[in-house]
Amino acid sequence: MTDQNAHHGNHGIKGYLLVFFGLIIGTIITVAAWKVHLPTLFLTVLVALIIATVKASMVAAWFMHLANEQRMIYAILGLTFFFFLGMMLLTVWAYGDAPKIHLP
């Protein structure tokens, strides 16, 4: 346990604060990008989701200590993430692949 304590000593706290400022800045950038009205909706969505993903990864990696976790947790989360993607992408694909009905 002692080495773990050392790991989460002052160095750890500095890291947490850095992540905190990163999250705040990320939020500001997201809102700013929304304010300037990017040329297409696609671009707006893309930028917003990229920033959100970066922020979420920071929370997961440092706050939730996923950067340095046991293999079992990775396995469980990997499986979950795969099924999550499967659910989302296959549903959207099924929607997009449906024959279009043209209403008069």
């Binding site: 999250l23 939020t27 997201t30 969505v45 979420a56 929370v59």
Partner: peptide
């Protein structure tokens, strides 16, 4: 917190 990070842009901004 992580859920909110996604909720905020998709509900408020997009």
């Amino acid at each position: 917190d992580l859920v909110w990070i996604f909720l905020f842009p998709i509900l408020y901004l997009l």
